[in-house]
Write a protein that binds this DNA or RNA. Structure first.
Length: 271
DNA sequence: ATGCGGACCTGTTAGC
DNA sequence: TGCTAACAGGTCCGCA
């Protein structure tokens, strides 16, 4: 469910309810996530106060006065604020209880997400350290994309989905950005000009920015931190439209599998 | 080093 | 209608 815009939407939704709150308890109903939730996590966060919230790629970072909580929503995770007394559902694995009487509730059917405690500089965490630039930040540039791609034969779609190249470009937005930039997803990354990378760079920024503005893409059951659904799914040009006509030229959109991910493109508009 | 496929899980959908 | 297989928003790891 979550790509970068969903994570950003979640962050913005939950931050006002968390900042300054003291944690009064920590309930783990199922610790079996991508990495097992540490048994000592409850003792570490209980009594601590939440400071700022950050996002790095698709990782959420909650600052405490005593350390940092690193959260990833994986493929199917979501965070919501509920009244602590709200009965948990099947896949509500974690509650972070707050002095306000609310709980930050983590739901994740597939359990690909993670909750890790980290003391010290979060930027040095092994899962964070090697991440590429933020797509909406100043370090993400056409020149950087172009340079890093020289000599690479990987498909450009796989290239931009590589978190060491740029973070936060998941399957949906990779498809959308390549369509907007007019680049064939299977083209070798190393055989694309700087000028075309410039178009791709702008397309990635554009699609992520407008998705965030619309509250993310609603897919199945996604809801943001405040419980409102996103509307970006109505704006998708190619993702989920295989076999349907291209919005630009009317050609039938082609659907292939690339690196085990569904890839949709217009054979006419994307070269 | 690069690049690919498998792995982790469960729920939903497509197809027979 | 019912069963089974394929597929789904991510990303780490190990092998060639």
């Amino acid at each position: 469910m979550p790509e970068l815009p969903e994570v950003e939407t979640t962050l913005r939704g939950i931050a006002p309810y968390l900042q300054g709150q003291t944690v009064t308890g920590f309930i783990v109903r199922n610790p079996r996530l991508r990495y097992p939730v540490a048994p000592e996590l409850a003792a570490l966060v209980t009594g601590a106060t939440v400071g700022a919230l950050h996002r790095r790629g698709k990782y959420l970072l909650l600052d405490f006065n005593t350390g940092h909580l690193l959260i990833h929503l994986g493929m199917s995770g979501s965070l919501r604020l509920v009244l602590a007394a709200t009965p948990p559902g099947n896949h509500d694995h974690i509650d972070l209880l707050l002095a306000s009487g609310q709980a930050l509730r983590y739901t994740d059917p597939r359990r690909f997400g993670l909750w890790l405690w980290h003391e010290g500089d979060p930027a040095q965490h092994s899962l964070i350290r090697h991440l590429g630039p933020e797509p909406l930040g100043d370090d993400f540039t056409p020149q950087g994309l172009w340079q890093r791609s020289r000599g690479k034969r990987v498909a450009v779609k796989s290239f931009i989905m590589d978190s060491q190249v740029v973070v936060g470009v998941g399957n949906i937005y990779a498809n959308e950005a390549l369509y907007l930039a007019g680049i064939h997803p299977q083209r070798a990354a190393g055989r694309i000009s700087l000028q075309r990378y410039s178009a791709l760079h702008d397309a990635i920024r554009g699609v992520l920015t407008s998705a965030i503005a619309q509250g993310g893409t609603t897919l199945r059951d996604f809801v943001g931190g405040d419980g409102k659904p996103g509307y970006f799914s109505q704006s998708l040009s190619v993702y989920g439209r295989g076999g349907e006509p291209c919005l630009g030229c009317g050609s039938k959109l082609r659907e292939v599998r690339l690196g085990q991910r569904t890839t949709v493109y217009c054979p006419q508009c994307q070269r």
